[in-house]
């Protein structure tokens, strides 16, 4: 709302030169991410509470650090491809943006495949949802993170489809930058999980 009444404006934290709808959406996205922080905070706390409650079943010793490290590299790399996609779309280079998006989807799917493999391995070694509170908390935390990755993959796929049909513009609900924020958030949650759940427990 551009108005010739600058004297009555007071500077505040959400003013920017960006267009208003864009700014409003980004504000909401950050609020949503703040909410997600509490969501994962509660699950990570549950895990910390139960980190040693293994009922003589498998505990942190079954973690395969080299494998999970590979998964972590994959997810970190997907953040790079995501930010490059975002940057390409900002330059209005839709073609290049799509290529990076496809790369991100591929890395996300690889991460998910790795998680399925890891879960299968752990179940074979005797760690199930019911083995112990440790098992319950581990699967719930990493499972919900995986669900977030899956939702992200779905959103990215939608973006690719929209872009191909020329329906990706600031006037539409979906937006590369917001999806990118979500994707990076899922990545930083994994950074925390990798440190707290894996590296600190072995």
């Amino acid at each position: 709302m551009a108005v010739a009444t600058d004297d009555v404006f007071e500077e505040h934290d959400f003013e920017s030169t960006a267009d208003p709808i864009h700014r409003t959406r980004k504000t909401a996205m950050w609020i949503w991410l703040g909410s997600e922080v509490f969501f994962f905070g509660a699950m990570i706390s549950t895990f910390l509470l139960y980190r040693n409650t293994t009922n003589d079943g498998p505990g942190a010793e079954i973690f395969n650090v080299p494998f999970t490290s590979a998964s972590s590299f994959i997810l970190l790399t997907s953040s790079l491809t995501m930010v490059l996609a975002d940057s390409a779309f900002q330059r209005r280079d839709q073609r290049q943006g799509r290529i990076w998006l496809i790369g991100t989807v591929g890395l996300g799917l690889t991460f998910l495949a790795g998680q399925i493999f890891e879960f299968t391995e752990f179940v074979e070694q005797g760690l199930t949802l019911s083995t112990s509170p440790f098992g319950s908390a581990f699967y719930m935390l990493t499972g919900f993170h995986g669900a977030h990755v899956a939702a992200g993959v779905l959103m990215l796929s939608l973006l690719i489809a929209f872009s191909l049909r020329g329906r990706l513009s600031p006037d539409h609900g979906m937006n590369v930058e917001l999806t990118a924020l979500y994707w990076h958030f899922v990545d930083i949650v994994w950074i925390v999980i990798f440190t707290v759940v894996y590296l600190l427990q072995i």
């Binding site: 505040h12 934290d13 959400f14 920017s16 980004k26 950050w30 991410l33 909410s35 922080v37 509490f38």
Partner: peptide, 17 residues
């Protein structure tokens, strides 16, 4: 980006901790 986003996110992080 503008300072407001930073505050919103930090609010969540610090609060959770």
């Amino acid at each position: 980006d503008v300072r407001g986003y930073r505050m919103l996110f930090l609010f969540g992080i610090v609060g959770t901790l």
